[in-house]
Design a protein around this nucleic acid. Structure first.
Lengths: 242, 242
DNA sequence: TGCGATTTGTACGTATGTATT
DNA sequence: CAATACATACGTACAAATCGC
């Protein structure tokens, strides 16, 4: 079994080795917990140096397919089941990917201090100065999403001077908060009267609601709620063996 | 600017170098497109070997923070915006994480041949033998989700003999289809009459619908639809700098 | 308790290949 | 064509963790 591993001769050697060891794992031939050949065994098997074998195995470990431990060796990681990931693109990208023309319009822009309600959801002190922005995104002129931004001015003071009349907040923030931590919560809600009117829907229609919070240096920076008509929008994701 | 990079002295050298280069990127000091010091410059800066510097930079590239190109060198990758990922755990894990007792009950199990409708959604030939399984997941005895499985018996023939009376299909499949490719589509739907009854809801309540398709060796293997009451369940995800 | 053996982790130096300007 | 900068690969060495005796 161990000896049935074979290189396919295409591409870099460390990639060939990675694929050779990956194959029986993703096929299920090697069940979780099963020991993977040691680096020395693979060196002998493939005639490669330890650095090269090590790189292949380290990549498999980074991808979560194996677990490595000193002395005891590497074993196949437990099944993938709950490692599914979904990518959430920008609204603009989603609209344009569908071949439609993207546009947006500002619904509101005002400063406020955090009420108890907002402060609770935002996990900040009541009274913190905030900037609230509401937008409607359009696809071919028809409502595609509502977006409600709360920006913590204590964390991003430079937002005060930005009118957001030429740049939507998502893009403006992308350059101020690159790679900041953020959390998403996706739920389904029934459209209320106001929401239905803005999205041009019947009240009660199911909508996707995506709440997103981001932090800058550990301080809550933005709180965004995005609403999509249930029909006509979907979050999609893919899981694939590395 | 380039010279302000500094090691923190903790942990492996390649990790220190990675962090040192990572810091100005995630802080926004180095905007997308900005050139990252070459491996030779970093060798001189930190007094490390090229192998070590290379490993640090390769890791940053794997994580998507920089883009590496021959001759022109590495540059900061464009902003993270649309790289958000959401992990989708199993229903059992979600229920138990909330401190509730998980249970499930089978609603149906029967063999069928793919109708045109199913064949179209499943992307298989009409008439293909299928196994259909329906489940209701319970949290503390109350309906928490409905799950509807279609298993392609042409792809997973051994499923015919499995009654799934002791193991739910998700767990049974995890050992047959480890790491198989799968795609998710999340939408919001209004509960229909049957759905509302099974989930103990008022008809029309918004629900999250998660469709998942998986493949084995490129052949469609399973098609799963999972429905959650909009209130009481959410998909959550996190994005964090690597 | 300690000690040696095994296995992975890290880091070095070096060499050659390859894509791009 | 030459120079640059990354990509791959070899060999080596020592360190750290851990298991069995």
């Amino acid at each position: 079994m161990t000896d049935s591993l074979a290189l396919d001769g295409t591409g870099p050697l460390h990639e060939q080795i990675r694929r050779a060891v990956c194959a029986p794992i993703i096929s299920g031939a090697w069940q979780p917990g099963r020991r993977v050949p040691s680096e020395h065994e693979l060196m002998a098997l493939f005639g490669a140096s330890r650095m090269t074998v090590n790189r292949a195995m380290r990549t498999l470990a980074d991808d979560g397919l194996i677990v490595r431990r000193r002395r005891t060796g590497s074993v196949v990681a437990s099944a993938a089941g709950d490692r599914a990931v979904m990518s959430m693109g920008s609204i603009r990208a989603a609209v344009e990917a569908g071949g439609q023309v993207y546009s947006y319009e500002s619904l509101a822009r005002h400063r406020a201090r955090a009420t108890d309600d907002i402060a609770g959801r935002f996990k900040i002190a009541a009274g913190t100065p905030l900037l609230n922005l509401s937008w409607r995104h359009l696809a071919d002129g028809r409502p595609a999403a509502l977006e409600d931004y709360w920006i913590n001015l204590a964390a991003i003071p430079e937002a005060v001077d930005e009118m957001f009349d030429t740049v939507p907040p998502a893009e403006w923030l992308a350059t101020r908060l690159p790679w900041s931590k953020s959390r998403y919560v996706v739920t389904a809600v029934n459209a209320g009267a106001a929401m239905a009117k803005l999205l041009d829907l019947e009240p009660g229609i199911a909508c996707l609601k995506v709440d997103r919070r981001s932090w800058r240096d550990g301080v809550p920076a933005t709180f965004v709620t995005c609403l999509y008509p249930g029909t006509g929008h979907a979050l999609t994701g893919e899981v694939a063996p590395p």
